[in-house]
Amino acid sequence: MRPRSISTGVAIVLIAAAVLLPLVAGDYFTAFGTEIAITVLMLSSYRIIVLTGEWSFAHVVLQGVGAYTAAILVKDLGWPFPATLAAGAAMSALVAAILSYPLLRMKGFYFLMGSFAAAEAIRLLWRKIPFFGGTRGLSNIPAPYLELGGVSIDFGHTTNYFYLTLTVVICCLLLMWWMEQARIGGIWRAIQQQDVLAQSIGIESRTYRRLAFVIAAAFAGIAGVLLAYAFGSVTANRFSLNFALYLMIWSIVGGTRTFYGVVLGGVVLMVFDESLRFAEELRPGVYGLILIAVMLFFPQGLERLLAPIVGGPTKAPRRDVVPSTRSENA
């Protein structure tokens, strides 16, 4: 139980640090904290897909689906924040469910390219169709505003919005953590480790891969809604291939084996990313070098370095290609 109590401790320290952030930092860093929280949500939901053994390029665009949904609902119909949050999640999940039918017939590289094609086509449609604001996107999204029994909170204020985001993200993380402990998490891991064996003991792997894809999309949709309000605007370029690549890179560099790995990795990398801002143009190159170094020297991600401290699997996991059943003994 010791490792678990340590990771609980780490979680509490992280949350405490997050709660205290606006008190010690200015608006700039608080807004940055909001971005970190949204990124952590993206990374940990992306991990659900990775947990089933696939890499997707569509996740960022599914975030965009949530963002556009919220922007349109709040601007055109004046829906309140909680309703747009739910609608964003539902819409992303719906789009993912539709996409999953063709996409989940593919695996590995084919799935990666298929997810890219579908996502990029959707993104280009946003740029093309005036309803979605074309290349300029949608702007002037009003900040959420709470008026309840004399108490009114304006979430347009950076600190207030940060706390709102933090609350939503922590709820989502708890939900995901719980799912992973439940049977569905075990099933996802079984599929990732040995798809063939999983099928032979009665796990319909495509169904559960689809479920993972859709659930992950719902959380991405929530991250999208949060992003739309945070920036006050939505543009198609925010969901381009570059961001999909970064999501993938961060998952790989941070490691996706454990829940804390993604969260911690997300925080560290965002801070690192911010500290590279003075050399904006060189940033991609630095990431490239890190990615190459990690693949060559720490193929399981940097979380392996922390594993002995915070707990988690100590045995080197095998990610090699599944040796499929021998086709014929000829």
Partner: peptide, 27 residues
């Protein structure tokens, strides 16, 4: 050559090379 047994690793390092070459050109 060093990642022969790891096809996903190969794919990922090529993304790394992509970013490095792009940045090199910018620089």
């Amino acid at each position: 050559r060093r990642l022969r047994s790891n096809p996903v690793g190969c794919l990922i390092v090529t993304i790394g090379v992509l970013l490095v070459l792009q940045t090199a050109a910018v620089w």
